[in-house]
């Protein structure tokens, strides 16, 4: 039997290893490396109602062991996604999780409705983008607004809804409970931490947008702690992410309470990390004599 079969409520994946939105395009850029059907799912690059050109460069910099990015949700808009990206993506043989953003509550309803189509496996709702002026992170830091967004999406689709939480809050458990009450089926966490880097020669911020989202190995302990807290606070499954680079990192997230994990920045370092993690979790289970990875979900709480 498949030891990695993953059931996130009504949303099922062949294994709990996914790739994070914004780090994998729609999958096309990675298909030379391996068969994408090996992945549990692909969270595609964030999509908005209209086309967005994104922020002025410089958009990314490596700093303190991680990276800061401020892309600004550059994408071709939902029509472009449906007409030009989804037809190919749905042939990959993996779950296609579409990451959606909007600048108003109504935008989220519109996106959910438009994407309630064949080929879309689930919606990941981005209420935590630090890099756009309107909407984005404000929805992710106010529990009432997060509740409203979740409810709006719920009312406009029958697809599984994954609410992506921002770590840039005082109490992540309250945010998690808010989206759960709003109708979220799953929580994904965490999005990037807001950070910055300064060029000391030029005496100016390196990222043109001044601030950006910090990701990579240094944020792992923060993400892990938040998954641990949210696991205790809600009854819906969690997709854990934040600096996962190898099997041990992934196992830590599962033991903290994640039912699935996502590799983000790691894809830039080594595109094979998600595949290595799938193998690595299987090996771990074999060594421990376990028949399913679900036996270790939340193990650290016991």
């Amino acid at each position: 039997m498949n030891k990695l079969e993953c059931n996130l409520g009504k949303f099922k994946m062949k294994n709990p290893v996914t790739v994070a939105s914004g780090t994998f395009g729609s999958g096309k850029e990675f298909k030379d490396f391996y068969d994408l059907s090996l992945l549990g799912g692909i969270m595609v690059k964030g999509t908005t109602p209209e086309k967005r050109v994104g922020n002025k460069p410089q958009r990314l910099v490596e700093t303190s062991g991680g990276i800061i990015n401020s892309i600004g949700l550059a994408n071709g808009g939902v029509d472009d996604f449906i007409n030009n990206i989804l037809p190919e993506a749905k042939t990959y043989g993996t779950e296609i999780i579409v990451n959606i953003s909007g600048s108003s509550i109504d935008d989220y309803g519109y996106m959910a409705d438009r994407l309630s189509i064949d080929g879309v496996s689930a919606l990941e709702v981005n209420i935590s983008c630090p890099n756009v002026k309107e909407g984005g992170i404000t929805f992710g830091t106010d529990p009432n607004m997060a509740f409203d967004v979740a409810k709006m999406v719920k009312n406009n689709t029958s697809k599984p809804i994954i609410m992506k939480l921002s770590p840039n809050v005082t109490n992540i458990a309250i945010m998690a409970q808010a989206v759960e009450s709003g109708g979220a089926d799953i929580i994904s966490m965490i999005n990037t931490l807001i950070g910055m880097a300064i060029d000391v020669e030029k005496q100016r911020p390196i990222i043109n947008n001044i601030i950006g989202g910090y990701s990579g190995p240094p944020i792992k302990p923060v993400a892990l702690r938040m998954v641990y807290e949210v696991y205790k606070a809600v009854n819906i499954p969690i997709i854990g992410m934040g600096g996962i680079m190898n099997t041990t990192d992934a196992l830590e997230f599962i033991m903290a309470g994640a039912s699935a994990i996502s590799v983000g920045t790691g894809n830039f370092v080594d595109p094979y990390i998600p595949i290595d993690i799938i193998k690595g979790i299987n090996e771990y289970l074999d060594n421990k004599g376990l028949s399913s990875y679900t036996d270790i979900i939340g193990a650290a709480h016991k």
């Binding site: 914004g22 780090t23 994998f24 395009g25 850029e29 990675f30 690059k45 994104g54 460069p57 958009r59 990314l60 990015n69 892309i71 550059a74 894809n267 830039f268 595109p271």
Partner: peptide, 8 residues
């Protein structure tokens, strides 16, 4: 690889 849209 064309995925992150940083180097535009």
């Amino acid at each position: 690889l064309g995925a992150c849209l940083s180097c535009v």
